[in-house]
Design a protein around this nucleic acid. Structure first.
Lengths: 127, 127
DNA sequence: GGGCGGTTTCACAGCTTCTTCACAGGAGGA
DNA sequence: TCCTCCTGTGAAGAAGCTGTGAAACCGCCC
């Protein structure tokens, strides 16, 4: 007897697969893959990544992220979000060098958008 | 030799043979073989192995495993799954040295995937 | 009853992850 | 440029999870 997985119940805007290009997230399976290979994340890391990914391309405040992941009252001096953003950035940078996923918006919060970082020498941009 | 058996596939239930390389499971016959030789497992051990094998390569929570094998309400401090994972690991390690089958996902659960035991961790990203 | 194999529970060691802190580094405005 | 506030980061202790041996428990058979 398969009891179905709790989906929408647990996850606000639940979808089975979040496609971020080479990065793929399957929240219901606790799985994050890069080019099909599994990326090892801890519980918090996964939760935060999912929370960001579900709000893709939008600036999300720390407070909203904290509410989504930690589910307890947010203190204004809370730094957990920052710390886990760093952890995620490191793992993602290792798995996908040259890509940037989590962008900082000073004074506002974070935004997840897969994008190439121009760390390599590039010919001047021309219109 | 291999006449019309339903291939084990992605569908959890109703698989006749689960092929894990040198390890083969025939749930309907209560049989587990290594290189064709029968491996002696107790009922619980077999049930747990089958439950994991039918969810191959996926992280399975203790709760789901407990539901599949024990079929009674799961207490959050329940340790039976861990104990039987250990029993299975021991017997499998003895039968197939150098292979690892049951992987722990801290905070999530267990995952069955046949793989060589190499130290092959993500060197990055801790702390 | 006593022995036997299997199952469940228990206690604790060991390890991983989470939270918090302190300070360094940057961004933005005056 | 200087000052202030915000974010990045490493480290350390706290908290939580898993591994493990052994004892307790259970049903079955002699």
């Amino acid at each position: 007897m398969d009891h179905g997985k709790p989906r929408e119940a647990d996850h606000p805007e639940g979808s089975d697969v979040i496609d971020l290009g080479r990065l793929e997230i399957r929240p219901d399976e606790y799985a994050v893959t890069v080019d099909g290979e599994r990326l090892a994340l801890t519980v918090r890391e996964l939760q935060l990544l999912v929370a960001l990914a579900r709000r893709r391309d939008r600036i999300v405040t720390r407070e909203e992220l904290y509410a989504a992941v930690w589910r307890k009252p947010y203190r204004p001096d809370e730094r957990s979000v920052d710390v886990y953003v760093r952890k995620l950035r490191r793992k993602l940078a290792f798995a996908l060098p040259g890509w940037e996923f989590i962008h900082t918006h000073f004074g506002f919060g974070y935004r997840l958008s897969p994008s190439h970082s121009q760390v390599f020498h590039t010919p001047a941009t021309r219109g």
